Amino acid sequence: MITVEKLTHQLRTLGLAAGDTVMVHASLRALGPVEGGADGVMAALLASVAPGGTVMAMVSWAHSPYEETLNGKQMSTEEQDAWPAFDPKTAPPEPEYGVLNSALLRVAGVERSNHPDSSMAAVGPHAAYLTHPHPKDDAYGPGSPLERLVNMGGKVLLLGAPLDAVTVLHYAEALADIPNKRRVTYEVPVLDAKGRKVWQQVSEWDSNGILDCYAAEDGMDAVEQIARDYVADGRHREGVTGATKSHLFEAADIVKYGVRCLKNATDSGA
């Protein structure tokens, strides 16, 4: 079992430093046993960017109705009535994104954005700035937490997580000025000013296949392909953390790289 102190040292060796703002994607299974479990990993992350650092993650929502309402799918009145409204103070995170997110939401002073499907959480001096506001439309584009992460020189850490997890590349997809990008619509239940549940339609770029060449169900999407190419070009840092290898990216650099890759893919007709 790795100690919090040892994991902190490994994260610092990888490239995290005091004052950094980092968006983390983690696989605790790949990382192996850590003192204190998920809370211990979170403690190491916060220590690795202390003092003055901020840790952010995409936590989403366990009850997001994205699939149930995608592109015109209809829920029955009974289903809509029974579905909980999103409340960032109490909504459970999406388990698919890992148990570290639950630990993040338990940290004192955590801030969480109010987007039901793409909710972001952060802890640290820049937490409120990163998470608020979060546009309901274009959740990953201009005005989003991802844009603010990039603009403030943030980093992206894959803590044993796979290369298809680099959420900041959805910002590259939103920025890329290329034809035939797909948009999707879906509905989310939110609380209005009086605390009543209302269903709201939102729209964003298709994060599951922004272009035809990246939309095959049995193939890599744009995020994974771009991240693989980026690593192959050696523009990142990597090192051992616990029982696995982790990757560290400069958010602005990988976004710029991603925009260029998307344009090249379109120009070549891939």
Rank of each mutant, 00 (worst) to 15 (best):
V4M: 09
T8Y: 05
H9Y: 15
L11Q: 06
T13R: 15
L14I: 10
D20L: 08
V22Y: 01
M23H: 04
M23F: 07
R29D: 15
A43H: 14
L45T: 04
L46V: 07
A62T: 09
H63A: 15
N71H: 14
G72R: 13
T77G: 14
E78W: 06
P84N: 06
F86S: 04
K89Q: 08
T90S: 08
G98Q: 00
S102F: 09
A103Y: 01
A103W: 01
L104C: 03
N114L: 11
N114K: 15
H115L: 01
H115V: 01
D117Y: 11
S118K: 10
S119V: 03
M120K: 08
H126D: 11
P135N: 13
G153N: 04
V156F: 09
L158C: 14
L159R: 06
A161G: 03
P162F: 07
L169N: 04
Y171S: 02
E173P: 02
A176L: 05
R182Q: 13
R182S: 13
T185Q: 11
V190S: 07
K194L: 12
G195V: 10
S207E: 13
G209K: 10
I210D: 00
L211D: 01
C213R: 06
A216W: 13
E217S: 14
G219Q: 15
R235I: 09
R235E: 09
K245D: 13
H247P: 08
L248H: 03
A251R: 06
L262R: 06
T266Q: 13
G269F: 10
